[in-house]
Amino acid sequence: MTVVKAKDLIKDYGLNGSTVHALRGITLEFQSGEFAAIAGPSGSGKSTFLHLAGCLDTLTGGTLSVGGQDVANLSKKQLALLRRNSLGFIFQAYNLIPVLTVMENIAFPLTLLGVGKTEIRDRVLQALQEVGLEGMEKRRPKEMSGGQQQRVAIARALVKRPALILADEPTANLDSKIGREILEIMVKLNKNAGTTFLFSTHDPLVMDYARRIVYIRDGQIEKDQVK
């Protein structure tokens, strides 16, 4: 099944009167079950593509469908619901809610979905186990290392079993040993649960693990390489 389908995707940013052409016509598809990375130098448009695929931003031109829905036709609220139901995010800066415990952070997407209390608990504990953080559910984010926080973020992304997890430079803040651990977890999830992952990265380590690498430069596809 096609999870993301972009055709001639264009994204311009207006910046102080001038226009930045962040994406200049990207045509790409990702199928469910993929473990793919968008690679390219800084400023090439990786994050921009991920944000569009994640329905966090509006496109300037072309067409884009996510989870089979043409995003151009969706309202703000429908986009929010699409994200809530089908997408997971992992950010470079983890972005956990500091006032909530690990348990509550991971539970947050399920809370938005209206899942019942006991089911939330079971699923959060399951997700914690999957990322190797058993027994840490009562901790606060600031009591954990960067690697642990990123694992919590992964658990938060996967706990609702989304069709697609988007990870914007997930290893950039971690040293290579921890980065490898994180990637191992994601590979395992991809293998065992069939979770689709789409990264943006310029970390060779991530490219090592990715089974497909789309190289972009100046908002255009340079190379689409399947290992």
């Binding site: 609220k77 929010a80 619901l81 139901n85 995010f89 972005n95 938005l112």
Partner: peptide, 16 residues
């Protein structure tokens, strides 16, 4: 702000 951005990214609606 960042926290709010993240929560909205995870599907929190404006109403919430």
């Amino acid at each position: 702000t960042k926290e709010i951005g993240m929560m909205r990214a995870l599907g929190m609606t404006t109403g919430q």
